[in-house]
Design a protein around this nucleic acid. Structure first.
Length: 1092
RNA sequence: GCCGAAGUGGUGAAAUUGGUAAACACGCACGACUCAAAAUCGUGUGCCCAAAAGCUUGAGGGUUCGAGUCCCUCCUUCGGCACCA
């Protein structure tokens, strides 16, 4: 008997497959296509760890299954090789990044090849290959021509360590994602792509992506962040500022003055708001510290420091131009200008981290400037605060403190007026229908001495005619409680009013919560009464921490009243204090122990106490209205305090008020334009030439690619320019337009550029005429299945969708969306539960696993670990299970006798095997389709375990079982297949037990090299539905829903028969005995439930 | 804080979508083979218990003949976003 030698087998077949070009993908074919894509890796120096191949194994399984099902499969691999690590390594070690890349790629490739993937390496691509990035540059030029690429001087995120600008997408918690340094804001000339032009389409088309995980779509939605609202202009009321608009004193303005006057006077502030309906409640404006008006005011005000040119002469228009602003005119009088300046500078210096840490609102008023609320002409103050972002909306907001959390917080801090203009929609319901419920919860109900206290409560409530709800009376028959039960029964009111009191045992909250939801009540405040006579303080503590985990009620308990006496043996005043701090509740220590006497006479002190309690509840109801009238409400509703718009609902009012003040309804996106340049060496040069005469000139297409020159130094220049800027012979060039001296753009593209379209290049990797041949693109696109990490949910997948849509618009591709189906792969964590990383020293190299256990075992294990999309910790012990399974399969084919049914030995075949096999075909086929690889494997294990029990097995089933297993464990199955001998002649396809249904359509099997036989040229088995129907089944017999017995019955048993069988069971009789059967529930093929 | 996903044995996890909870695997225990060990095979393995009965899917409640699955109120963990007006 041969031993399973994974090493030998795997090497052998990897060689054979390569030699026979088994995985080479042909373009011209009449087969249906299937394009399966992995997110291509960045070839880092660390090599692959066992987590990387998880996704690749899955795509490989799919690819192999699709091959077997007769598809023409494209399953390529390539390298996303531009990027910072290679460059940083180059700086350190003075090696060209390309060299390091090549080395890393070789490592990656050998690691991948050991695992036995179906990649067609003839289609390998590399983003750093000039023949590849030629087309990245080409696409950039097309965008430039369409006006989608522009230069901008906006401040960018600057990483001082990497000496480069970063997109927002490259930040992690305000730090550089690569090196973890604090990010500064630095203005710099950048190339920016107008991705925002595509925001709406990218959002809308998410709906088309039926086979994308909802979570990813949701994340993209949030990332795009569409919000609809209005732009509204607030006039500025500032005498001196306004006079700028109208020339003073009617002085005739010479042409010169007008020309040289560099200032554009800002006479109004435009804000963006999603809630124009709250305009009447806007009691101040806020500008972002970076707002242009702020900048302007600061520079204006600076002039004030310079002694004024003063007097009448100042109006002279003999100015030399610059003079117009040179302190001759008294302009803006910001009385707290120093303060403002200081604040603006402070915020500028704040790092992102600091801004994040300090959530408290800060800001400063712009004294001397007022704005006019265009709705009611009210004069309102203007503030500068960093809670307003410069690059969202207009960088300025109208603040409505009554209806916005942030504005509310700020207004409270600054003491600004808060004006309510929206009443909640259910305002009326709140006051009329939806009742407030007052709650008194009593702890220690039913204790001996406490009855006196409860009697007082009863008396008090009766006298005051207060309705009571107390449904949770202790469930005991003790006569002691009879009086209470009667009382509550009598007083329970179906309708509740503001006076109603819920009085219950302190353990009642479960009921209470239910009651509140059922009756649509609102719980305002609860009072907790805890007589402590016999309750040790620890008991009370316990109660709050363990039993009483109803956090909502807990939060509402504002007052805890503990009735106790100072002569109590069990607790001290210190205990009270401690407990009160813990619960942040107020205690009333009641001194008179007499409350708890059995005494029937009223105790005036108790009455007083109760009145206090109820009064405080009533005052709460009062304050409830106050809360609604003057405090925060952020929902929509009915307008109040809004003059002619009063009574209108928010939705209507949004439009009406916007129209009324001459505003404009607009849409805003969080998505920002894509900062597309990096001041680094190792990226695609941006194909642009700067000419003094002609300005920005694109490199002519025929000159592409603009190749990356070799440099001696990879260090950033420190000025923020790319190292390319130092290579004069590269930078200096001729202007393609005028032929004059010109300079090349020295910025390079970000890593995202090459990865935004690589999937298209696999289709036609060698084409030097076009990015991709149109016909081939039409055949292969879109990608049918894309598998990769969820970490790319927003960046890569947004960029690629954008890029693709652009290519669609210019006619390069045929479909609007690049990826039809997307699936996330869950991470594999290290055995210690952390991420695998050199830093932790917990990395497991797949090479070691392949050497020791075999590629097949690793493949099976990684797919068996758990649900594919979930992250799991690696466990080498678990791997042993996969290995044992393969060994069992091996032994099966070595030890068992395989018989052909045609040989007249059908009878020798165990009858369990054929139906189980067909079930296995079904399960494996379906589970691969739905990415449930773990259960597919488990089913195959069940099948193998069953086979192990028998000595004689049906040959055709066993052969086809190998095909099922082949995508998971290609090497061992290929070997066993070969051992069984050439197939076609021996077993007529579709033959064998119960396989009448598999009529071969002959696809695929014969299309290759005739001498080369491979299991992967066979056909995926089909199951026969008749074979999986059970004739008998185990019927579950339940009594009142509980399983009492199981009986073997035939599959098509009738209800009557089933009933008979069930009642025949002794076990069932035991439960049914003598009792009336009220109802019988019969579920065909499953169970029978007797209800008694 | 907001959005999303998820909580099931000692562990990784299954559960036909409302119908036998814990398949499959790891681990563990016992047994067989062996001088012995490893490997392999067999048996057992949710909790409580001698057994019968009972209990059990983060907590509590609800709907239902029947709930891991649906509804309500919470808790916890992990991802994403985070002053987005």
């Amino acid at each position: 008997m041969k031993k399973y030698n994974h090493e030998k087998i795997e090497k052998k077949w990897q060689k054979e497959w390569k030699k026979n070009k088994l995985y080479q993908t042909k373009n011209e074919t009449d087969k249906p296509k299937y394009y399966i894509l992995d997110m291509f890796p960045y070839p880092s120096g660390a090599g692959l760890h066992v987590g990387h191949p998880k996704g690749y194994i899955a795509t490989d399984i799919l690819a192999r299954q699709k091959m077997l099902q007769g598809y023409n499969v494209l399953h390529p691999m390539g390298w996303d090789a531009f990027g910072l690590p290679a460059e940083n390594f180059a700086i350190k070690n003075k090696v060209h990044p390309r060299e390091m890349n090549e080395k890393n790629i070789a490592t990656f490739k050998s690691q991948l090849e050991k695992i036995g993937f179906t990649y067609d390496w003839d289609r390998e691509i590399n983003t750093t290959d000039p023949e590849y990035y030629k087309w990245t540059q080409w696409t950039f030029l097309q965008m430039f021509k369409k006006g989608l690429a522009y230069e901008s001087y906006e401040p960018i995120n600057w990483c001082p360590k990497c000496q480069t600008g970063l997109a927002n997408e490259d930040l992690e918690n305000g730090k550089c994602e690569r090196c973890d340094s604090e990010i500064e804001q630095k203005p710099m000339r950048q190339w920016v792509l107008k991705i925002t032009d595509y925001a709406e389409r990218m959002l809308k088309d998410l709906d088309k992506l039926q086979n994308w995980p909802e979570s990813i779509k949701e994340m993209q939605k949030n990332w795009i962040g569409k919000s609809e609202g209005a732009k509204i202009k607030f006039p500025i009321k500032e005498e001196k500022l306004r006079t700028e608009v109208v020339p003073r004193g009617g002085v005739k303005r010479s042409k010169t003055t007008e020309e040289v006057r560099p200032r554009e006077v800002i006479s109004e502030i435009e804000v963006f708001t999603t809630r124009p309906d709250t305009l009447f409640g806007a009691t101040y404006l806020v500008l972002a510290p970076e707002h242009e008006l702020v900048e302007k005011i600061l520079s204006e005000a600076r002039e004030e420091v310079v002694p004024r040119g003063g007097g009448i002469g100042s109006e002279a228009d003999n100015s030399d131009g610059r003079g117009a602003t040179s302190g001759s005119v008294e302009r803006i009088n910001i009385s707290n200008y120093k303060e403002v300046k200081k604040y603006v500078e402070q915020t500028k210096n704040k790092t992102e981290m600091e801004r994040m840490e300090n959530k408290e609102k800060t800001g400063v008023e712009l004294k001397g400037v007022k704005a006019i609320n265009p709705a009611n002409q009210e004069e309102i103050p203007v503030y500068i605060a960093d809670y307003v972002l410069a690059d969202y909306g207009t960088g300025a907001i109208m603040a409505v403190p009554a209806h916005d959390e942030r504005d509310f917080e700020f207004a409270q801090k600054m003491g600004i007026k808060i004006k309510q203009v929206i009443a909640p929609d259910d305002y009326n319901q709140e006051t009329n229908d939806r009742k407030q419920l007052n709650v008194i919860l009593m702890h220690g109900w039913g204790g001996h001495g406490k009855m006196g206290w409860f009697k007082e409560v009863k008396k008090f409530l009766t006298n005051k005619n207060i309705d009571v709800i107390a449904p949770d009376f202790p469930n005991t028959d003790s006569p002691k409680y009879q009086e209470w039960r009667d009382f509550f029964k009598k007083n329970i009111q179906p309708k509740i009013n503001d006076q109603t009191v819920f009085i219950g045992h302190s353990l009642a909250p479960s009921f209470l919560m239910h009651y509140i939801t059922e009756e649509n009540l609102q719980l305002q405040q609860a009072i907790f009464v805890a007589p402590v006579l016999h309750n040790r303080i620890s008991e009370l503590n316990n109660f709050f921490e363990k039993d009483f985990n109803w956090s909502k009620i807990k939060k509402l308990i504002k007052k805890v009243i503990v009735l106790g006496s100072d002569d109590d043996l069990y607790i001290t005043l210190n205990d009270f204090q401690e407990l009160s701090e813990k619960l942040s509740a107020k205690f009333i220590l009641h001194k008179n122990r007499g409350h708890f006497s059995q005494n029937e006479n009223s105790n005036p002190e108790i009455i007083k106490l109760l009145e206090e309690i109820l009064d405080s509840q009533n005052s709460n109801i009062q304050s409830k209205f106050k809360i609604q009238n003057s405090k925060l409400y952020t929902g929509v509703g009915i307008l109040i305090n809004s003059e002619q718009f009063d009574g209108m609902n928010s939705e209507e009012a949004k439009k009406a008020i916007t129209k009324f003040v001459g505003g404009e309804m607009t849409v805003n996106y969080k998505l920002k334009d894509w900062v597309f340049s990096r001041q680094r060496y190792w990226g695609e040069p941006i194909p642009i030439i700067h000419c003094d005469k002609c300005g920005v000139v694109p490199v002519p297409e025929e000159e592409l690619p603009v190749k990356l020159p070799d440099v001696e130094n990879y260090e950033p220049t420190g000025t923020g320019e790319s190292p390319l800027a130092n290579i004069d012979e590269w930078v200096n060039t001729k202007c393609p337009k005028c032929g004059g001296e010109a300079k090349r753009e020295t910025n390079t593209m970000p890593q995202w550029a090459g990865s935004s379209w690589y999937y298209l290049r696999y289709i036609d990797p060698k084409n030097n005429k076009a990015l991709v041949d149109k016909k081939k693109e039409k055949y292969w696109s879109p990608v049918d299945f894309y598998i990769g990490g969820a970490e790319h949910a927003t960046r890569h997948l947004i960029y690629a969708r954008f890029w693709h849509k652009f290519l669609f618009d210019i006619g390069v591709v045929n479909y609007e969306e690049p990826f039809t189906r997307l699936q996330n792969v869950g991470l594999i964590m290290a055995e210690d539960g952390r991420k695998m990383s050199k830093r932790w020293g917990n990395v497991i190299n797949p090479d070691d696993i392949v050497d020791e256990f075999g590629a097949d075992a690793m493949r099976v294990y990684e797919m068996f670990m758990g649900p594919f999309a979930q992250s799991v910790a690696w466990n080498t012990k678990g791997l042993i299970g996969a290995r044992r399974f393969l060994e069992k399969v091996w032994r099966l084919f070595q030890e068992k006798e395989l018989v052909e049914c045609g040989g007249g030995r059908c009878g020798d075949v165990p009858k369990e095997i054929p139906p189980l096999f067909h079930k296995t075909i079904k399960k494996v086929t379906e589970d691969i389709e739905s990415m449930n690889f773990n259960t597919a494997i488990s089913q195959m294990m069940i099948f193998v375990n069953e086979c192990m029990k028998h000595d004689i097995l049906p040959k055709s089933a066993m052969e086809r079982f190998l095909i099922l297993l082949a995508p998971f464990a290609p090497h061992i199955t290929e070997e066993l297949w070969a051992e069984l001998g050439a197939r076609e002649e021996v077993v007529p396809r579709g033959g064998g037990i119960g396989s009448e249904a598999d009529n071969s359509d002959g696809r695929g099997a014969t299309s290759r090299n005739a001498e080369f036989s491979s299991i992967f040229l066979e056909e995926w088995p089909k199951y026969n539905p008749d074979m999986i129907k059970d004739e008998m089944f185990e019927m579950v017999v339940q009594v009142n829903g509980k399983v009492r017995d199981k009986v073997q019955v035939s599959a098509d048993i009738s209800e009557e028969e089933a009933n008979e069988k069930a009642l025949a069971s002794e076990k069932v009789q035991k439960y049914v005995d003598g009792k009336e059967i009220k109802k019988v529930i019969f579920i065909k093929g499953r169970l029978l439930n007797l209800v008694i």
